[in-house]
Design a protein around this nucleic acid. Structure first.
Lengths: 226, 226
DNA sequence: TGGACCTCTTCAGCAAACCTTCAGGCAATA
DNA sequence: TATTGCCTGAAGGTTTGCTGAAGAGGTCCA
């Protein structure tokens, strides 16, 4: 799992990072609100751990902006015991769960797992690019209304592409995202998957929705540029 | 409106009280099960907000005794995210609605209003998908009018599927839901139950109502998609 | 109490689906 | 034209889910 931790107290974030990495998760640390928000918006993460009390823009503002941008990333908030009032505000803004400091590490990981499992605050995520529709709740994909049968990996790949539509994705970042548990995957494996995905989603069309960016990776266009 | 809040976490109940009083309601707080039950039986209230996890007798027991005494007071239950299994029990006992903590204040007031408006204990017990009908009150299931005899576990499974029709349910979430008391259940056990359920509800039909989503879990389609 | 019956759970075997790699070919760039 | 990068068809190996069977535990009734 890819976890983003936004917490300015270095010792605490270091501790959380270590603990999560021991469990096999990939962790990225951020130490202030603006940077954390930017990271969250990249779409690289499965969950965000967010301290409410932050330098720069605070945690509440981070969530507010994140949700405004329609990002559905699950958020586990951390608050000090004496700012319980913030919790109400945070929950209203769409935080998925919270922990008051200090907390036991066991509780932290348990909550994290629960939040991640439950998925994003708003569950019915309908992603679209051109006439391609992906519904992560029902796990179904269709193009021009025609339902497509994708395998699990193809689905994960396509979801990543759509979430990052318009951006060039390097082979490395794609592999890290899709095969986070096994990075000994060769680039060719990805190529083969890209092909299988293309044949499924591009049915008979001349131009693929997934463009090759030679020497770098791939890009899914945001618009249907014929 | 007169609201009775039975919740032992003082900070939370204080918060709810304040919020409701701002909206012009009258609120009484109770901090344990027995006292809460006694208050409820006075008949002074329009609605009860009840935490399931309580010191003394727990929330489930409170509802049980309350309903036994033929009290029709509407109840909005509060549960922790990790005791989802309790919800089933609570609904069976005649809770009108529930919220999993943490929740947004806006959602709380909305649910509260809905429950109060709906009046005492009117449960929607009739669940349908395609031509399959499940009555959770009487425990009866039928397909195309043909009654089906399901075992307890099969029934619980089917109810969960219908309540979440159109969504992909992972094996883990299903197991957590159905076997909340014993999570050492193996995935194969679930598979065997799926099979037994399928043979009963799909009688002779070519396509099962319960679809397999390879690598993830299962999904019951909302529409009868041939 | 003992036996018939029902339900739950696990096991082992199997077939299909899926993932991954390889080797050769084609296309873009210098 | 040579080189590099990407595509492609096919094949092997692994994983996943389905299935029939059988033991364990519980319940009901004689």
């Amino acid at each position: 799992m890819h976890v983003l931790i936004v917490e300015d107290k270095r010792s605490l974030s270091k501790m959380l990072k270590t603990s999560l990495e021991e469990k096999g998760h990939t962790v990225v640390l951020s130490f202030d609100g603006l940077d954390g928000l930017a990271q969250a918006e990249t779409g690289h993460f499965d969950i965000m751990v967010l301290d409410i009390m932050l330098p720069g823009i605070d945690g509440l503002e981070v969530i507010r902006r994140l949700r405004k941008g329609k990002h559905q990333l699950p958020v586990l908030a951390l608050t000090a015991r004496d700012t319980v009032g913030d919790i109400v505000a945070a929950l209203d803004l769409g935080v998925d769960d919270y922990l008051t400091k200090p907390f036991a590490m066991a509780e932290f990981t348990a909550r994290l797992r629960a939040v991640a499992r439950k998925g994003p605050f708003v569950q019915d995520v309908r992603l679209e690019v051109a006439d391609l529709v992906l519904d992560s709740a029902s796990g179904q994909v269709s193009r021009s209304g025609v339902p497509l049968a994708l395998t699990r990996t193809q689905f994960a790949l396509l979801e990543y592409f759509i979430r990052r539509a318009g951006h060039v994705l390097t082979r490395e970042s794609i592999i890290e995202r899709i095969w986070s548990d096994n990075l000994d995957i060769e680039a060719n494996t990805l190529e083969v998957f890209i092909r299988s995905l293309r044949t499924k989603i591009d049915i008979d069309r001349k131009v693929s929705l997934i463009k090759t960016v030679r020497g770098v990776g791939y890009r899914m266009d945001a618009e249907d540029s014929v």
